[in-house]
């Protein structure tokens, strides 16, 4: 166990996955010699060669489309999309081919493809480098969508994603790449689809994922000072959603706040709120609150601090759940 940054944990996870299975092939722009723009694949081409770590031509449809073909041929490709905003040229391959293949093949075949995408804002970046596209993927049947918030989860989830026979969209919160956390290379990982209660509480449940997890934990700390006990749930897997963990918590607390950076309308928060009102309606003491990015394109970086959900906005939402 040693403190490790998430980018390094991902690197270790990919390395381990490649050692464990020589059919694992990485494909992406600048992932070889450069090691990717976030250095997540640093050193892997040197150690595994350029048939297993492929510097692709500049085309995302090509990256995902050829990964699909490789998977059909028995390989387990891991694609890297350079930034969130650049996944869209690959959307056709992801939505019309990758997600639907198992269904079309009537369950006879699967496509074990991982599509890694750095996501989210708060890093002062230029346009298309701060987006949160998770709802597009969660809305697409046939894809699993995961988003680690800690180095340990990143390491575990990336290995599990590679082993998954379902295609996995693997979202890496950029803001968390260089945050350090304990990493145990041989820990027994939790199941992919299990949300994690990071802090137990009785009065209000805060559900979030990715880069907002530390924000939610800070909120819980402040709540505690104010005499309120907040439970923090890290969703980890955005599709399928672990209803049971959320419902169990809300049935105890009676209050729910969902926070994500992505825009509000038709986002993950909407889905979670709908499920909770459907399945735990009589436990609710207050309407479910969403704290999200607004329904605008991601703003110029000078405005991002106030645009992104932060501690104050989540605290305000917690307050609102106590107004009832």
């Amino acid at each position: 166990m040693s403190p490790t940054a998430m980018a390094h944990a991902l690197n270790a996870g990919l390395r381990r996955a490649m050692e464990d299975d020589d059919r694992v092939v990485l494909i992406g722009e600048d992932i070889g010699r450069l090691g990717g723009v976030f250095r997540v694949t640093d050193g892997l081409q040197k150690d595994f060669g350029d048939l297993r770590v492929v510097d692709s031509p500049l085309g995302e449809a090509g990256i995902v489309g050829s990964a699909i073909g490789l998977a059909m041929a028995g390989y387990r490709p891991v694609c890297e999309i350079q930034f969130d905003g650049f996944v869209f040229p690959a959307m056709n391959q992801i939505v019309t081919q990758l997600a639907k293949y198992r269904h079309r093949a009537e369950g006879r075949a699967s496509l074990p493809v991982v599509v890694r995408i750095p996501v989210g804002g708060g890093i002062g970046a230029i346009e298309h480098h701060s987006e949160s596209p998770e709802a597009y993927f969660a809305h697409t049947a046939g894809l699993k969508v995961v988003c680690p918030s800690s180095p340990q989860d990143a390491y575990d989830l990336v290995r599990q994603a590679v082993r998954s026979d379902d295609p996995v969209v693997f979202l890496e919160p950029k803001r968390s790449y260089w945050r350090k956390g304990e990493l145990d290379l041989d820990a027994v990982p939790a199941p992919v689809e299990r949300a994690r209660v990071l802090r137990a509480g009785d009065d209000v449940t805060v559900v979030t994922y990715g880069a907002l997890v530390p924000v939610a934990l800070e909120v819980a700390r402040i709540c505690a000072e104010e005499g309120r006990s907040a439970e923090v749930i890290d969703l980890r897997c955005l599709s399928p959603i672990d209803d049971a963990t959320i419902l169990d918590s809300v049935r105890r607390t009676g209050r729910l706040v969902v926070a994500h950076e992505a825009s509000r309308t038709a986002g993950l928060g909407a889905e979670i709120a709908a499920r909770v009102q459907d399945r735990a309606f009589y436990s609710l003491e207050a309407p479910v609150q969403r704290v999200t990015g607004y329904d605008t394109p991601y703003p110029p970086s000078r405005l991002e601090e106030d645009w992104l959900p932060g501690v104050d906005r989540v605290l305000d939402a917690v307050d609102r759940t106590f107004e009832h």
């Binding site: 722009e29 600048d30 070889g32 010699r33 450069l34 723009v37 510097d55 692709s56 031509p57 500049l58």
Partner: peptide
């Protein structure tokens, strides 16, 4: 060059 990719990667 396209970042780290020389033109030979493209064509």
């Amino acid at each position: 060059w396209a970042i780290s990719s020389p033109y030979s990667v493209q064509s």
